[in-house]
Design a binder for these strands. Sequence first.
DNA 1: GCATATAATTGAACACTGATCAATTACAGG
DNA 2: CCTGTAATTGATCAGTGTTCAATTATATGC
Lengths: 213, 213
Amino acid sequence: MGRRNQHSREELAGLALDAAAAIVERDGPAALSMREVARRVGYTVGALYMVFINLDDLIVRLNERTVAELALSLDAVNRKSRAPEQRLRLLTAAYLGFALLHTHRWRLVFEHRLPDGQHAPPSYRGHTAGIFKLVSENLRAILPRTEAAAIDEYAIALWAGVHGLCMLAVTGKLQAGGPASVQRLLDLLVGRFVPDPAPRSRRPQRTGSRVPV
Amino acid sequence: MGRRNQHSREELAGLALDAAAAIVERDGPAALSMREVARRVGYTVGALYMVFINLDDLIVRLNERTVAELALSLDAVNRKSRAPEQRLRLLTAAYLGFALLHTHRWRLVFEHRLPDGQHAPPSYRGHTAGIFKLVSENLRAILPRTEAAAIDEYAIALWAGVHGLCMLAVTGKLQAGGPASVQRLLDLLVGRFVPDPAPRSRRPQRTGSRVPV
DNA sequence: GCATATAATTGAACACTGATCAATTACAGG
DNA sequence: CCTGTAATTGATCAGTGTTCAATTATATGC
């Protein structure tokens, strides 16, 4: 049948992304197909190609949503405390929590490769930058005497570490036990990027006090 | 045509894995198919199913090879120095180098999901454990007064961080520039797990940390 | 040397996939 | 009511993983 106009283009795209998210969440990225999405939204494959360039495009836009959701979640968590170090720990916990809750969708963000040299849309990078900013701002609050460029490096290294830990945890490639012990490792990582915790006096020059117990 | 017996089963499997590695290396994991592998080794798809259970099995065994190669490479690099901290830096450099050199194959190791609850073969875990041991041994040499359990946690956190950094770097999801700056971040990360946090130390390292393994 | 059994190998088949596009259909404007 | 336009379909193409009856080359027994 021809033109139904039951849904506008944006609506159809939205429904399709909803369906895609549900499929991925339920049965993993391998189960995601144009035909299955079409089936779920009650349209035919051809209709989807009015709204998406191809499957890659659909995936990229799904990932965009996922990253937006993640950024929103981290932003909310960041407001729950005023202490920068506490905030960092909350952020890592939220990141791990999101990865554990939406494992398939989260993995799809990082494991989907778009062909050739084309890369993700600017809005995607925007959300990424937003997350990065949360980390770097808290790090700056903790290390006020460190210059901005160094803070940025710290933030990248720290967050890449958090990400790696979460990824290995989520994919079962970590011999560590449950989520609790992963959070322990995350805290350990954060601890390494933060000056000596409370009990000891702050002595940035001497190295002896940094020996962990 | 029937039985040729030009190659034994193991030989055929070896040839197929060679071909698979070449395909993945050249055109990425998406280009890897049973038919393409068969074409390259001069056999038909059916023949491959004598030697592999399915495509997943082929991929797992390819990944096994990749991890073995990586473990070998890291082991070799570890012998190039006696100073534990230097060793750690060399290990990170070698890890990054491998990821950059064999990007597609390396990504396949970490991005391939095998269905349901089945997981990688024991030999795979063996290589992984071997790599982990290199890290933890060097960490123990650096932190002689730290108990074993804590060392293990440090090693996991550190190496997950290194892994995350390399993964983000290799997938272009790091705004950092070239390999040199990634290595800077890796050094920064190692520096955070090593007593002297200052990146540039004026004096040579303390003799206490030079304890060989 | 020849028949036979055995194991390797093929190639066609099935059910799926992404993607394209002529044909069809429903709606809006005149 | 008609007509043009835009949405939607469904068939089609080339590709995929996987299975399996049929075929064939080799090794073995006689």
